[in-house]
Design a protein around this nucleic acid. Structure first.
Lengths: 347, 347
DNA sequence: CTGAAAGCGCTTACAG
DNA sequence: CTGAAAGCGCTTACAG
């Protein structure tokens, strides 16, 4: 006989009845008055927990107020960030979740300490937090977990503590695929224009590149590896440096599309033709790569899907579900466009 | 004798007394019921605003949380939107206001009616709403105002009702300046690749163009005016159409940078050199214009500043201040880069 | 469209 | 400590 009582609204009075005390007594327990016998208090607390009583204020919040997830970016000035954000927003729209957006800028993690922020998130009944590229240290992320705030990190700069869920892409495999593509086109002098040295996804891409080179028995000239930042400026400067070499590379694998577009712009200024004189592969697969002339061959990350996955994981954690793995990597795939071609006869 | 009555808590009943109506009536106004005479409603609204009445829920909320402003975009897929958003976020950060982000997509104004949305905004103690490019009809915006939700519109597609504050740029003056620049370079065959026909800022830019042409005694060939959408595809198609004309234009004024970049990409494919064969001016002054090759001459809008201004106006309204004008236009300015040059000897 | 009356759910003041 | 009674502030149902 299933429990199909006509579900009346759960009031303080009902809790009182259930607990065998008066309404004022329940009120006192809820409001933390101290003029309640310890035995009475725990009896009432038990009923409150069991029935899941919510004050009208809380009920109201759950009715009108939709759940809110806090999303923190270090910056919104990249196509990468926008696509991830769009994925989160789209997914949030479907789940009727609202998105509170925070951009911390380079100065790091804004004025609030991790503790203050965690307290606020709990206080205001938010369902969790998504952190995109850095902005929080491992220690800070740990603090969230300890306070019970569901948190998911997308492409963390450093490996997060084991108990924090993180979402990324198969950067190593992507780097390997990009480089293999160039090798298959006959290129051997392939340069790598990387992002910030210590950042994990950059390292993974670099090592994918190295793995492909090694697997093909190609020795890497160390001057062909130039780490820097994920910016078009780095692409511009990187190409300038590479063109000054005696042995110019015939192909460049750039660690993201911004770098690649910087290379493309500088190549045009220098009269270096892409792909005739120089093949070029980017990473990210942003719309910019598609729209450039020549259109850029690039390793596409499922950025929107990463945003969507992050939100999904927040919701799972909110529901108390356990995730299979604290680290999820979504597959990248190489999109071949116009910026890569077979190597020319080497002079 | 200053008014130093012992400040009793401001209740709904007190507001009713003050307004000379009953408590139920005030309750109806607050909850947006429609069975209230317009006159009564405005009388009560006046007292509510003057006394600064807050429902118990709101009172509670002001104690715990920070203020939240809701920001609604139709899409986040343009550099334009990102820059406006960054302006809002920056300004919000300084004022310790949080930003709730909503993207409605093309389907229009999401699942919620204006009434529901307004109710939710009030209910959750949000301080107002910024709407960027469309997403709400004039009638809907009016509904917000009637419910007392401070609202500011940035670049509305249609002129909003008089009582709604809107922020934009001097589109007409900008269009005129762009066109004058081309005229000064000796161009006479100047085409206009516009955005959606009915959208106000596009019309203003078009009429700025027409005004400059007329002021210089240049007759406009109607085939040189092609309205479409604010997209690079429109630039691509527009240039194709223009190149099929017997009398090709020597210059194009594109209604935004995306269109201009579409023109640039197609020009490169067709072997049309910019600026030697074709001068090109965009509008918006986004970073894309700066980074393209050749760098794009463009009418810069102070997009970040527009975002900042919108948030400022929300806060003024929240404080009950009256604005000097319901419409604010920030100045545009022409940034001359590499995509414009003196007209060549005409064949 | 308005408001007197009844109602709701929680809290307060206080007698026991 | 407890709870009957009064109170508070808002909302609902409905007569006019």
């Amino acid at each position: 006989m299933p429990d199909v009582e006509p579900k009346r609204k759960l009031t303080l009075a009902a809790v009182a009845r259930e607990a065998g005390v008066s309404a004022p007594t329940v009120s006192k327990v809820i409001n933390g008055r101290d003029d309640v016998a310890e035995e009475t208090r725990s009896k009432v607390m038990g009923v409150l927990a069991r029935t899941g009583y919510k004050s009208p204020l809380q009920q109201r919040r759950n009715l009108t107020g939709r759940q809110v997830v806090e999303v923190v970016f270090d910056s919104l000035n990249t196509a990468y960030a926008i696509e991830v954000l769009n994925g989160i927003l789209e997914s949030a729209g479907e789940s009727e979740i609202e998105v509170l957006l925070n951009v911390t800028g380079k100065q790091g993690t804004s004025r609030l300490s991790a503790e203050q922020r965690a307290a606020r998130i709990i206080d205001e009944g938010r369902c969790g937090m998504i952190v995109v590229t850095s902005a929080f240290s491992g220690a800070q992320l740990g603090a969230f977990r300890r306070r019970g705030v569901p948190a998911v990190v997308i492409d963390p700069f450093n490996p997060p503590p084991a108990e924090v869920v993180s979402v990324g892409a198969t950067n190593w495999a992507g780097g390997k695929e990009a480089t293999s593509h160039l090798l298959e086109l006959g290129h051997r002098r392939i340069a790598y224009l990387g992002g910030p040295d210590g950042v994990e996804c950059n390292q993974a891409r670099l090592h994918g590149y190295l793995a492909a080179m090694r697997a093909n028995g190609v020795t890497v000239d160390s001057r062909y590896i130039i780490q820097g930042s994920f910016s078009s400026e780095h692409g511009v400067e990187g190409l300038k440096t590479l063109l000054r070499l005696q042995q110019r590379p015939t192909a460049i694998f750039a660690a993201n599309d911004s770098i690649a577009l910087g290379v493309l712009a500088e190549a045009r200024r220098q009269g270096v033709r892409v792909p005739e004189d120089l093949s070029l592969v980017g990473f990210d697969g942003t719309s910019q790569a598609e729209e450039s002339v020549p259109a850029l061959t690039s390793v596409a990350q499922p950025l929107q899907e990463m945003g969507r996955a992050a939100l999904r994981f927040i919701l799972s954690q909110t529901r108390g579900e356990l995730l299979d793995s604290p680290r999820v990597e979504l597959a990248t795939h190489l999109v071949i466009r116009e910026s890569t071609a077979p190597v020319q006869a080497v002079p």
